[in-house]
């Protein structure tokens, strides 16, 4: 992504260029709350500024969030380490290893924690139960829903963390299916 386009997205999230993923995430959550409904900071401007304006701002915030997550994912080592938060550069290779998968429940958790994202934030944002998310990261397969649902959850979870949803889903489900094949009757 061109530099000035990137800057535009950082501006939109009210962040300095190259802010770490954790800040991108926090800023996104914070702004989303402001522009999602009638917050007391917006209501007083109501008459002069239309609903349309509010929705537009919300869209821009969401777009900026997605684009920045993508950019972070595309350029892990060129700009800053994938989940940089000002750590020493020695952290780099280790984090790359985590980022390179194969994605498992525990590795996903590690990535999430490095990014400074709380499980309950994901739960709120994706409207998923905490237990489900915990089971997902613990690979407590018996507590997880059918593969077709699990696939959707995994995709959302992965995009939320700025990971490749297709790869995460594929690799996670491979292990899940293997377990399923061992324990229960195969799905038809």
């Amino acid at each position: 992504m061109p530099k000035d386009e990137l800057k535009k997205y950082y501006d939109m999230l009210e962040l300095p260029p190259d802010a770490p993923l954790r800040d991108i995430h926090n800023s996104f959550m914070r702004l989303k709350k402001i522009y999602s409904g009638d917050s007391i900071v917006l209501a007083p401007l109501g008459e002069e500024f239309s609903e349309k304006k509010r929705k537009r701002v919300l869209e821009q915030i969401e777009e900026a969030h997605l684009k920045l997550l993508e950019a972070k994912k595309d350029a892990p080592s060129r700009t800053a380490p994938l989940f940089s938060d000002g750590r020493e550069p020695e952290d780099g290779p280790e984090m790359d290893k985590i980022g390179d998968g194969p994605y498992t429940g525990p590795s996903l958790r590690k990535i999430r924690e490095k990014a400074g994202v709380e499980l309950n934030e994901i739960s709120k944002e994706l409207k998923l139960r905490m237990e489900l998310l915990k089971s997902l990261e613990d690979e407590k397969y018996e507590a997880l829903p059918e593969a077709i649902y699990l696939k959707v959850h995994l995709k959302n979870y992965a995009s939320f963390l700025g990971l490749d949803p297709v790869r995460v889903t594929e690799e996670y489900l491979r292990r899940y299916q293997a377990w399923k094949g061992k324990t229960g009757p195969a799905e038809k």
Partner: peptide, 14 residues
């Protein structure tokens, strides 16, 4: 305290 940050955002964006 966080209200200040929200107001800042609205003033800039609106």
């Amino acid at each position: 305290i966080l209200l200040g940050a929200s107001i800042k955002s609205v003033m800039m964006k609106y």
